[in-house]
Design a protein around this nucleic acid. Structure first.
Lengths: 138, 138
DNA sequence: TTACAAATCGTAATCATTACGATAGAATGT
DNA sequence: ACATTCTATCGTAATGATTACGATTTGTAA
């Protein structure tokens, strides 16, 4: 996902490309990692002192629905990152800096065999720990 | 995990065995699935009309820390279930009834090979969908 | 049974998220 | 250019889950 493609998705779906929406894209494209709604709110508030929660959450959900962002729950708080769905994969997530590393291992084929007569609607595979950089820092 | 073992863990760690703590165990042992704090609170309130949030949450955390319960985050809300750590496995979780089915497939060995120089501290593999019973019901 | 620490109650505070009426802004047709 | 009509945003209040804490009660060991 890049800015051009995200804007293309917005216009294709008849959503307006506003300055706030562009700034939100900049925020997520700047760093390839998970961020909380609060992280984004703080970033936006520096640039638009009157920004509303509504704008932040509404656009997070919009981007999520359009596939521009993907999300995960880490300790009962939603985290969002720029989408990278060119192929199916999962993530290593650093507990310290939040940076993600793709993992190209997916156990669903094997798992599926043991779940005949179950209707599978989704799955989650995440690995948590310290990335090389954060190990050195600690 | 069963009631005798849970009580053994409590006393071994010098925690008191109170009526509320026993009732909480009954609640989780009754059904092999994930429950929210609210589920437990409602159950407790029927039996102890003056039960406090504090008691519910404090004991959920205590049981979790002692390994009597395990937890997961489903749509930004913590869910708890009685621990079943006899062997390492993961769960299929029904989106409708919350019942769990163990899955004896774990992708960590393969994943680890691709993550040399990363320090792995934990992982999560969950499959969501409809269990056979809930497919019939819908 | 007494005494003390642990557990619980009652209630307020916090944190993330959602909701909604009022206002502002962009796109379209005249 | 102007009016019309959506859409987006603001301002703020409400909700839902969770945490916090002083006051009171209860369990346990001497």
């Amino acid at each position: 996902m890049n800015k051009t493609k995200a804007i293309e998705i917005l216009t294709k779906n008849q959503y307006k490309v506003t300055t706030r929406r562009e700034t939100i894209l900049d925020f997520f494209l700047k760093e390839d990692r998970y961020h909380t709604a609060k992280n984004l709110y703080d970033y936006m508030e520096e640039r638009y002192p009157a920004i509303s929660f509504d704008t932040v959450y509404r656009n997070l959900h919009l981007y999520h629905d359009l596939g521009i962002l993907e999300s995960t729950n880490l300790n009962a708080e939603k985290h969002f990152r720029i989408s990278c769905h060119s192929d199916h994969h999962h993530h290593f997530i650093c507990n310290t800096c939040g940076k993600t590393t793709p993992i190209h291992v997916c156990p669903m084929n094997e798992a599926q065999e043991t779940l005949t007569s179950y209707k599978i609607e989704g799955h989650k595979f995440e690995i948590y720990g310290l990335c090389p950089e954060c190990q050195i820092a600690s």
